[in-house]
Design a protein around this nucleic acid. Structure first.
Lengths: 161, 161
DNA sequence: GTATCTGCAAAGTTTTTGCAGGTCG
DNA sequence: CGACCTGCAAAAACTTTGCAGATAC
C-alpha cells in the first residue's frame, strides 16, 4: 500500500508498456508515461476506474477522460487488449503478457489461469477455416475436480500446460 | 420482411422458451409470453434493442424496460445466457440450444456459430491435465476477415448487428 | 512553432429504477 | 384480493467529446 511518492523524480527506467509506446512512435506525455507505468506494474485486469485510481495514487495530474483516451489508443496500437468479463465495464490486459485462459472450478468458484499454445493454434486454425484472422480469443472451461491422484498442495497461479 | 402475422390469434402452441418459463413457475404475462416467443423464433444473438424491435412488430403493448427486466429474469432462471461480444451491448442466447462456440467479426460485429469436436477434445485434455473434468466450456474468437475475395469497399464500421 | 494532448464538463449510450396503475393466480 | 408486473420517464452507470489552454517533438 504505502507507495512512496517519487513523483517525476529520477525515473531513469522506462516501464515495459512505455517502451512499447515509444517503439510505436507515440508522443509520450506525463500522463501517458504514468498510465503506462501503472499498467506495467499491474498483473491483473483492471478497468478504467481502477487504472485511474492507481494512477492518481502516483500523480494527481491526470483525469479519467485521459485514462479512457489512453487505453483506447493503446488498444488500437495493439499494446492493450480489451476484455469483457461482464459487469458492464471494459477491462484491460497488456498484450505482451501472452494470452491466458480460465478454468473455473464449478464447486469452489476458484479460477485457474493457464495458457496453451497448442489450443490457441487449433482455435486460430478454426478461425482461418472460417475465413478469419484471429485478433483475440477467450476460452473458459468450467470443470469439476477429478478425484484421482490429486496433488495435495495445488496452488493457484498461472500455469502453462 | 414477411414475418408471418398470426398475432394473438389461436395461439394454441406454447413457445419453447415459454414452456421453460412455466416449468420454472414464472408468472406468465402477455409481455413475457411475447418476449418468450420472439426468443424462441430467433436463431441469432439479439441484443435488447433488437428483441424490443421484434416484439413490437408482433404486439405494441410492450416497453424496453420490460424487455430489460425479462431478459434479466430469464438469465437468472438459467433460460438465457448473456453474451458479451463487444460493441457495448449485452446479447442473449437461449441456453437450450446445442453446444456451440462463437466467432465474432470485430469489424462488423457479426457472430458466427460453430462447433468443433477436435477443439473440444483439446480443451478437455487441458482440463484433465490440470486435474479437472470438464463440465462446460466456452470459446470466443474475435477475428478480422481475411482478405480473400474481399470486395474493395469494405470499411470497418462501428457495428451493425 | 504546430500538431497533438489534457482537463473539465456536458453529452451519449446502455441499463436500472421509482411510482402509479394494471394483471395473474 | 394480494402479490407481482408494466409503462413511463427520470436516474444511474459507463464512455465519448467539444473546447480552450498546455505540451511534446
Amino acid at each position: 500500500m504505502g507507495r512512496t511518492r517519487e513523483h517525476s523524480a529520477i525515473t531513469t527506467e522506462m516501464s515495459r508498456i512505455e517502451r512499447m509506446c515509444v517503439e510505436r512512435g507515440l508522443k509520450m506525455t506525463g500522463q501517458r508515461r504514468l498510465i503506462a507505468r501503472v499498467l506495467s506494474e499491474s498483473d491483473d485486469h483492471p478497468d478504467v476506474e481502477e487504472l485511474y485510481r492507481r494512477a492518481l495514487a502516483l500523480d494527481s495530474r491526470v483525469s479519467v477522460a485521459t485514462v479512457y483516451r489512453t487505453v483506447r489508443l493503446l488498444e488500437e496500437k495493439g499494446i492493450l487488449e480489451r476484455r469483457d468479463f461482464g459487469g458492464g465495464r471494459a477491462r484491460y490486459d497488456p498484450a505482451d503478457r501472452g494470452h491466458h485462459h480460465h478454468l473455473i472450478d464449478v464447486d469452489s468458484g476458484r479460477v485457474i489461469e493457464f495458457s496453451d499454445a497448442a489450443h490457441d493454434a487449433v482455435a486460430r486454425e478454426i478461425a482461418r477455416r472460417l475465413g478469419y484472422e484471429t485478433v483475440q480469443m477467450r476460452l473458459e472451461i468450467f470443470g469439476r475436480r477429478l478425484p484421482e491422484s490429486a496433488p495435495a498442495g495445488a496452488k493457484p497461479g498461472r500455469r502453462s500446460v
